[in-house]
Write a protein that binds this DNA or RNA. Structure first.
Lengths: 149, 149
DNA sequence: TTTAATGGTTTCATTACGCAACCAAAGGAG
DNA sequence: CTCCTTTGGTTGCGTAATGAAACCATTAAA
């Protein structure tokens, strides 16, 4: 049987994972944020097989998360770059990174820091904030399902 | 060949995906946030195969993200619940959900809202903030790798 | 004219996923 | 005590996804 996809689940988390939840996909997007543009660049940075990379990139292009730009004169050189939709995944990557910083490496032991040039300091820990700008407690949340019209 | 895991990559994103990046894993955690506790509960909510669910749950327990609590008298009823390490994934799920709200369903069309009871309003959009509490521009970020000692 | 670089595709082996069937321990019904 | 149900799995088996290596087509450089 085919791997079950999450298309039919009425949930934004499932839908997002359906688009970027495949093995390798978020790491490709990460490297795009870190400056990778060319097929060979993703390949060598990630150590991913070429067929898998080609498949993931074309999926990402199909889904509007990256675009394939012809940067040669005649179609031998391409750049893959994030669209606005793709750049908008930065909070997702930041949340994943901050969790790993804390729970895999431990505070202060992370292998890389992301520094805001303006202040010279790392990004603040990303937390879900309420209307008053304060972090919310899990117990103070209520899930409200929309009725389908 | 076996699926390549991301163990050896010195990157918090890769390490986090190594723990929760498997197909189904983040949806199991999502349902734990939404109140699921029992094996059969996860099974019916997700429509996941029992062997896969058993495998993912034991992985999550092994990694300290969930814990298996005996709630029967003699070991026939168990509850799976998030540890602090697991609850700390809430920002990751929130970021995924907010991206899907915007880019899959479109603003205002998401199938569910998460409301802060205190204010009666949805959570604020989660964005990486700089030291001054303002959202940072991607161009103002600098990646600083730590040298290994 | 040959060689190298880019960006793939193809082939094949191995693993992971999905379904259904089976199972073991405990509790309740009769 | 015996049968049946519930819970929480495990086992087999077929199919899809992944990974490594080989191959390929186009363009450009030597």
């Amino acid at each position: 049987m085919a791997r079950k996809r999450f298309n039919d689940m009425p949930c934004s988390i499932a839908q997002t994972l359906n688009l970027v939840g495949d093995w390798w996909t978020l790491l490709i997007i990460r490297d795009a944020f870190f400056g990778a543009r060319r097929f060979a660049e993703f390949e060598s940075r990630l150590g991913i097989a070429k067929n898998i990379l080609a498949n993931r990139l074309s999926q990402l292009v199909d889904n509007g998360i990256m675009q394939k730009v012809d940067i040669g004169q005649t179609g031998t050189h391409y750049a893959y770059e994030l669209t606005e939709k793709g750049r908008d995944l930065f909070p997702v990557l930041t949340a994943l990174r901050q969790w790993g910083d804390k729970w895999v490496y431990g505070e202060g032991c992370a292998p890389m820091d992301i520094i805001e040039r303006k202040s010279g300091r790392p990004l603040a820990r990303m937390l879900p904030l309420g209307a008053d700008g304060e972090p919310v407690a899990l117990g103070d949340l209520e899930i409200r399902l929309k009725e389908k019209s």
